[in-house]
Write a protein that binds this DNA or RNA. Structure first.
Length: 414
RNA sequence: GGAGGGGUACCAAAGUGGCCAACUGGGGCGGACUGUAAAUCCGUUGCGCAAGCUUCGUAGGUUCGAAUCCUACCCCCUCCA
């Protein structure tokens, strides 16, 4: 075999190696052969692949659900490829995609920039900044001619569009769908055309949109992108997919203690999934834990503590994880006070408990505060309060507690 | 454009003149149990200490009294064109 032949063989081998890494953990790679082809060509021509991920500009907080996809992007980067992050600022300007009565507030240019900055800060906890390009899709979408838009519209039928899960659902449940919403998948697909994307990533819920990119790229005579879908993870409730609007998420910017606590509150059934997809633990470590769980040698609580610890370590470092764990054990397992309690300054000599709870932000209204007291959910210095009309003389250092996790320490001025 | 159905609290869904701050389920919150898991059980879920006040698409009207009746408007759905 000649020099040249050997080289080709090495390329082939390397491409297969990359394919293997990149497909791992993915739900689908559509189609796999094309990815292999693209990888080979990339190696041959020493041109990195362009791997795209679209981001919604209205919800700038990244949660660990997003990191499933980000991790995959990072793998691409580690293999020398480039990431195209597309901020859907144009989409954000159009407004209301949910068809609800209230039109979504249009984002101003400033807000978009602000959100983009937030994204950048959070996303690079996972991604390699050097190999990431940030784009805003208004760059190309806002100037599209109507004729061009019609061309986009002509590539899909309504019936096909209504196959998309959320449209189908809304349609059958009689929830309004506006025409412009049908263009969303097309707009996202057009991003791939504009950026000549080689590979696009997304959650499985994005499959339809991602495939639309292929359709459109073909329409424009380009080689269609490969689509990689990643599993979605359920949020803290264990049922709904993790999302900010449902409030069931763990944000990458969450305080270490919150992050730890939230991780501890996930249902057991989700543990392995979290361990696999977001913990940052090595495969063998995860497998060991999993085996222990199945075999009954590892208490689920301890496995979950490992998960929580790993998660905090990943985003805040080891020291923070240790502290968070200690705090958790102290407050929830030993039921003693947290080491640090936010203090609340007040001046009065004599105060009524109910309005104080409201002022301190521990209850949304007086009525609610009363209910909490009636339900035995309020403690003063560890004693359950029974009297909703209670007045007392505050002393600095007194601790008020609502429920299991809300504490406040009084700080009497003067 | 024509005909019909419908908009009730966080969601779903009852209620069709006073007994409705509004049945019920889900969700949320608090409590018990526990591992801040699940399951289960209990309480609670507009504001107000209370008298009471503001809520049933929006704006008016009838009535002693309206989520319920009338008028106009807005929105959604179905069938036809």
């Amino acid at each position: 075999m000649g020099e040249r032949g050997r080289k080709v063989l090495d390329l082939e081998k390397e491409a297969l190696r990359q394919l293997d890494i990149l497909s791992h953990g993915a739900v689908d790679v559509i189609p796999k052969e094309e990815l292999l082809e693209k990888l080979k060509r990339s190696l041959e021509t020493k041109t990195p692949l362009r791997v795209k991920l679209g981001l919604d500009p209205t919800a700038p907080d990244i949660h660990i659900g997003h990191t499933v996809v980000l991790n995959k992007l990072r793998q691409f980067q580690d293999l020398g490829h480039h990431v195209q992050l597309v901020i859907g600022d144009f989409t954000g300007r159009i407004g209301d995609p949910t068809g609800k009565s209230e039109t979504r507030k249009q984002l101003t240019e400033e807000q978009v920039q602000e959100n983009a900055a937030t994204y950048r800060a959070q996303v690079f906890k996972v991604l390699d900044e050097e190999r990431t390009m940030l784009h805003f899709n208004a760059t190309w979408l806002s100037s599209l001619q109507f004729a061009e838009v019609l061309r986009l519209g002509a590539t899909v039928t309504v019936a096909r569009m209504l196959e998309r899960d959320d449209f189908k659902k809304r349609f059958s449940e009689n929830v309004a769908i506006s025409i412009h919403e049908l263009f969303y998948p097309l707009m996202q697909a057009y991003d791939s055309v504009a950026l000549e994307t080689d590979v696009e990533l997304g959650g499985t819920d994005q499959t339809f949109n991602l495939l639309m990119g292929r359709t459109l790229q073909k329409e424009y005579g380009m080689s269609p992108q490969v689509v990689i879908t990643m599993p979605l993870i359920e949020g803290l409730d264990g049922v709904q997919k993790m999302s900010k609007s449902l409030g069931n998420y763990i944000g990458v910017d969450d305080e270490p203690k919150d992050m730890y606590g939230k991780a501890m509150s996930i249902p057991d059934e989700l543990m392995v999934k979290y361990l696999t997809l977001v913990s940052g633990l090595r495969k063998d470590e995860v497998e060991a834990l999993e085996a222990g769980l199945v075999g009954g040698t590892v208490h689920p609580r301890d496995a979950k503590m490992k998960l929580a610890h790993a998660l905090v370590t990943r985003f805040h470092g080891r020291t923070a994880a240790e502290l968070a764990q200690e705090a958790f054990v102290r407050v929830f397992q030993k039921r003693s006070l947290p080491d640090e309690i936010e203090s609340f300054a007040l001046e009065a000599e004599r105060v009524a408990l109910v309005p104080l709870l409201v002022r301190a932000g521990m209850a949304p209204s007086n009525s609610e505060a009363r209910r909490l007291i009636a339900g035995g959910g309020v403690k003063m210095d560890g004693e359950t309060v029974n009297d909703a009309a209670l007045e007392f003389e505050p002393r600095t250092g007194m601790v008020l507690q609502v429920g299991k996790r809300r504490f406040i320490k009084l700080d009497v001025q003067g």
